Amino acid sequence: MEWTSSQLRSLVELTRRGTITAVAETLGYTPGGVSQQLAALERSVREPLLRRVGRRVELTDAGRALARHAERMLSIEADAVAALERTTRTVAGSLNIGVFATAAAEILPIALTRAREKHPELAVQSREMVVDEVYDAVAAGSVDLALGLDYPDVPIPRAPSLRLVRLVRERFALAVPSGVLPDRQEISVADTGDLGWILPDLDTHYGRAIRTVCRRAGVEPDVRHQVTDTAASLALVEAGVGTTPVTDLMLRLRPSQLRVLDLTERFERDIVIIVRSAAQSRPTVAALAGVLHELTATGE
Rank of each mutant, 00 (worst) to 15 (best):
V272T: 09
L50G: 00
E58V: 15
Y135I: 01
Y29E: 11
A278R: 13
R266Q: 15
M250Q: 15
D183V: 11
R46D: 03
E85F: 12
A82V: 07
L202E: 13
A78Y: 01
L14P: 06
A65G: 03
M73F: 13
V272A: 05
V12R: 00
R16N: 14
E106K: 04
A83R: 11
D222A: 14
F267R: 06
D153I: 12
V91G: 01
R169K: 09
P120A: 03
R259G: 03
R216G: 13
A175H: 05
L199D: 05
A137N: 08
G207S: 10
R46A: 06
E186D: 06
I187F: 05
V291E: 00
P283E: 09
A101H: 09
A92D: 03
G98R: 01
R254P: 04
L66E: 02
P182C: 13
E77M: 11
L95M: 04
V124S: 00
P120Y: 01
V143M: 08
T247G: 14
A235G: 12
S126M: 04
A103D: 00
L84Q: 10
T19W: 04
A278M: 11
R46G: 02
L14N: 03
T102D: 03
L162I: 10
M73I: 11
E186P: 07
V168S: 09
E71V: 08
L253R: 10
D150F: 02
C214R: 01
I156W: 12
M250K: 08
I274K: 06
A39Q: 07
V138P: 01
L251G: 12
A209G: 13
P48Q: 09
L263F: 08
R276S: 10
G54A: 14
A175E: 06
S233W: 01
P283R: 04
L149D: 01
L167T: 05
G218N: 02
G240R: 10
T15L: 13
E106M: 12
A67V: 08
A82G: 06
R276L: 14
E220A: 03
A80E: 11
V57L: 15
I156R: 12
A232L: 12
